[in-house]
Design a protein around this nucleic acid. Sequence first.
DNA 1: GTAATACATTACTGTATGGTAATACTTTTG
DNA 2: CAAAAGTATTACCATACAGTAATGTATTAC
Lengths: 128, 128
Amino acid sequence: MQVMSNSSDALFRILADPTRRIILDLLAERGPLSVGQLASEFPELVASGISKHLMSLRAGGVVSATRRGRLQIYRLEPDALAAGLAPWIAKYEQYWSAALERLRDLAQEGHGKDKVTPKKNVRRKSLK
Amino acid sequence: MQVMSNSSDALFRILADPTRRIILDLLAERGPLSVGQLASEFPELVASGISKHLMSLRAGGVVSATRRGRLQIYRLEPDALAAGLAPWIAKYEQYWSAALERLRDLAQEGHGKDKVTPKKNVRRKSLK
DNA sequence: GTAATACATTACTGTATGGTAATACTTTTG
DNA sequence: CAAAAGTATTACCATACAGTAATGTATTAC
């Protein structure tokens, strides 16, 4: 039974579910998507399940939705995601740097995969 | 019901619990600690509860334990933590940089709090 | 208008899991 | 040796929550 519930706490619970993390990945990779487009990526789940996940994500502020016709277009809210997790990430900052560097080295000699490349918001500034 | 279960998946589940995150913080801040020392930080929980959390953390590889006398000394395994989460963090790399910068600016003019300062392993290299 | 499409909401279910209490195990102390 | 200290393990309970199915609500198509 949880007592404390700051904002980063809610975020960690949101990220604990793999489906929700994949939804975030999809929105980051392909830009804003409708519920149907998202749901089609999860053939093993019924649509209402996706809808519920989207509600959780919205409640956490990491996605937002706008209506267009009868479609609901969901988009990533990267600032909310970053602002919520940055304090925690910063706490272990020194530990990431080495691991991220290793990843970058691997990506350099290997192909260029496993990296989200969003539509807009491409203010590349690269950690480290 | 979860189907996929790669290593970062297990990590996100581990981090979803605030008690476990605090345990990691304590080990990072104060270095290796015994179960009793850790448990004393959670007066609201019974000792066996802490023990169970420590088992989860060990199963995830983010802490390790060595016996000294009748004490079990737990220590953080930062590499496992970093290696497991780095891929995910790297995916959203560009989003963190801005937020982390803002945090750093705040920390500079404010006091120097909310930052884990571990005993050893102080290879400061600072993201960004 | 009616039907169909696209989601949201509600009610319900099963399972995972955080918590406690009790017991067992190992090591030190007397 | 027995007792105590420090953890681990087990059994159990309660709750959270992911999932489904069914129903409700807009919006577009016919």
